[in-house]
Design a protein around this nucleic acid. Structure first.
Lengths: 217, 217
DNA sequence: CAGTATCCTTCCAGATACTG
DNA sequence: CAGTATCTGGAAGGATACTG
């Protein structure tokens, strides 16, 4: 018989959350999966410092709780982990935490690492849905990965991969630069002047995109 | 020299959050303080299972990080802990987690405890700001504590204590009942019929309040 | 590739005693 | 009252080696 996990024993929404996703590493695993399905070894590579046993533990527990599931890739023996609908429900909470944490970030410490999808998380956290303009897409090229922001009927979403339609602008940068901008430690204009950030596209679209990301203050 | 806290070493908003408030008990302490300033021994009493040394550790760390501060009560030697502005910024994240966790709650396990302010957190998590109606207040009496919901200029807030104006309705219940309602495990009508929930007030206000809390589905 | 198994270290729970 | 200090068993976390 499996030993009962430690839990707070409180009948409270927050305590219930923390019983499920409050352990070390768990929310970082969720963060990775919020960007899309992912294989075991890719998770392992994107979470430097986690032990392979600990990753396996967490994945097993999250699967038992119905927060993630495994799915076979068609035409391949490889399996991906992906969020269930319940797991997807954590997006707002993760974004709220990321938004708060962005505000506390200072200059990176030596040894700190950055990944493109964390920059994508920063994009998503920065978005002000009430600033959504007309339907269009923006393509973000961060290091070697591509993401796109899509405005559709006032709904804004961020996803992995190229834009699915013509995109109104292309933004090219590295993940460190982008996270610094999100943290308010670097001015987009300054980044552009030093060539760490290159925006290519219609001028009006640039303004709309900046507004959407709260960069006009 | 103080030993450096364990941290993820990731330059990412979420990881930065978790470095500060990801340890066990920390968010539950924040939850208590979100309801208002609180003394050491009250925190200790409301967080059954935490050790006095662990609580002191957490409070010290949160103070060093600028998330909470201590304040002397006027005319008394007693000191309260309270959130700083930065700590107050965690409200949205805590509410998002509580909202998600409420959805996962099942019937309470034997030994689970409930507290009025956790029910107040459930109220706050349930609120749909877009459903805000005309300015008015609702008073909630849960066990032996009183909270009020205030709608003002389309902004909805929940606070400890009695309503500050005439209130459009008074709701009396116990914390267990209220959390169950928030978790969708108990129908408000059923709770009323069994006398676990008593609502006293104008009929239209009851409808508006129910809408605000998403109880009309 | 996707995990187990192992070993060791650190952290936490709970109790209790003590201080200003 | 508001903590600090100390101790102990047990659980969780981390590093590495190994397996189907």
């Amino acid at each position: 018989m499996k030993h009962q996990r430690r839990n707070y024993g409180q009948y409270c929404g927050l305590a219930a959350s923390l019983d499920l996703i409050g352990e070390r590493w768990t929310l970082l695993i969720i963060r990775e999966l919020l960007a899309g399905p992912c294989r075991y070894n890719v998770l392992l590579a994107n979470l430097p410092g986690i032990g392979t046993n600990l990753l396996a533990d967490r994945l097993k527990f999250l699967t038992e709780c119905g927060i993630i599931r495994q799915r076979a890739r068609e035409g391949s023996k490889l399996r991906d982990y992906e969020l269930t609908e319940q797991g997807e429900g954590l997006r707002e909470a993760v974004l709220a935490l990321a938004r708060w944490g962005l505000g506390t970030l200072e200059q990176p410490a030596p040894g700190d690492i950055v990944r493109p999808r964390w920059a994508a998380l920063a994009i998503e956290a920065m978005i002000d849905p009430s600033a959504a303009g007309p339907d269009e897409q923006y393509e973000f090229r961060i290091d070697d990965e591509v993401f796109h922001v899509s405005v559709l009927d006032g709904q804004v979403t961020v996803a992995q991969g190229k834009a699915t339609t013509e995109h109104a602008l292309t933004l090219t940068t590295d993940s460190l630069t982008f996270v610094k901008i999100g943290a308010g430690l670097l001015n987009p204009l300054e980044a552009t002047l030093t060539n760490h950030l290159v925006i290519d596209g219609d001028e009006d679209a640039i303004v709309r995109c900046s507004r959407l990301l709260g960069l006009m203050a």
